[in-house]
Design a protein around this nucleic acid. Structure first.
Ligand SMILES: [Mn+2]
Ligand SMILES: [Mn+2]
Ligand SMILES: [Zn+2]
Ligand SMILES: [Zn+2]
Lengths: 158, 158
DNA sequence: CAACAAACTCAAAGCTATTCTCAATAATAA
DNA sequence: TTATTATTGAGAATAGCTTTGAGTTTGTTG
């Protein structure tokens, strides 16, 4: 395990994963840092923000990189990473959830989705956020999240 | 059939359904005006805009008003009415599609949804529409529809 | 009104994202 | 190192929405 871990770590980021906030979050809940969890998280970190993967896609990508993790575990891990706050769960279209890395560099943003090929572009808009806030306030709702999905057709698909 | 039709018509609107655009649309496609189709459409007209029904809910409501239409027919009819342009298909949350009457009085609008009880409020926002347009333009996409879904918790559910 | 395709009903089947089961494994604390 | 117990893998099972099929009914046209 020591060896496997350091291989995984090599892809990963700034600090030593073993003492990272991630591990602390996990341990204080009686949860464990497993190679599978690291693989999923590393995939999102390496692929970069702007990607919105389904559980199935995460699975495929890990298989291709000969880092197979079972689909059941991927579902379990995605749920966990969302709860911890490292991933964000999206409903960009039909056919299940998609996940993206939640980072400081990519704050609240919205999505422009090609309904033909699925290509997805991100954009930010304070106006949209404000509109959501106002609507919630007017109706006495406690806002959780507002997301604008723009369905469109990309240049290649026109 | 003549009698059944006029009963249904009594709920309905301005002009004679038999010569309405609806019927023309149907007939020019070899499609037929059936009591079932009228019942579904009338339900949406009577219930008023601002309602967002699932197929199952349409079914329930028709059963309660002793106007039973089979669920299979409801699914086929909803699809038809969307294609004709009388209904709008929404994905407000998980768990299947919802439908709302598409009318001139309720133009493009957005939804504030209570994640606990499902209560849904509508609101309009030019800023949101503009943001969607701009995002599409910048990326060279042809815009189809932009919808802002605000997930929140309503006063009763807090 | 008769002819005929469209549409209806009821029931069964399909779909597919997600969860469950449980024996085997392995991360952690002591 | 050992004991404890969280986690995994593989696939079967689930769940919910939606579609399809067979046989019957009915709207529409001439
Ligand atoms: Mn994104
Ligand atoms: Mn609406
Ligand atoms: Zn495209
Ligand atoms: Zn509520």
């Amino acid at each position: 395990m020591r060896i496997a871990l350091s291989l995984l770590l090599s892809f990963s980021s700034q600090y030593n994963v073993l003492t990272s906030p991630l591990v602390e979050d996990l341990h204080k809940d009686g949860k464990r840092l497993t190679p599978q969890r690291l693989k999923v998280l590393n995939l999102f970190e390496n692929i970069g923000s702007g990607n919105h993967l389904s559980a199935e896609e995460v699975h495929e990508k890990l298989v291709k990189s000969s880092s197979k993790v079972s689909l059941a575990t991927i579902y379990r891990t995605l749920r966990l990473l969302v709860k911890i706050g490292l991933l964000h769960e999206l409903e960009l279209s039909e056919g299940g959830h998609r996940y993206e890395l939640l980072s400081n560099e990519t704050p609240d943003h919205h999505h422009l989705i090609c309904i033909r090929c699925g290509r997805t572009e991100e954009f930010e808009s304070d106006e949209v956020l404000r509109a959501g806030k106002i609507a919630a306030k007017i109706n006495g709702f406690k806002l959780i999240e507002s997301s604008l999905n723009v369905r469109a057709i990309c240049p290649k698909c026109i």
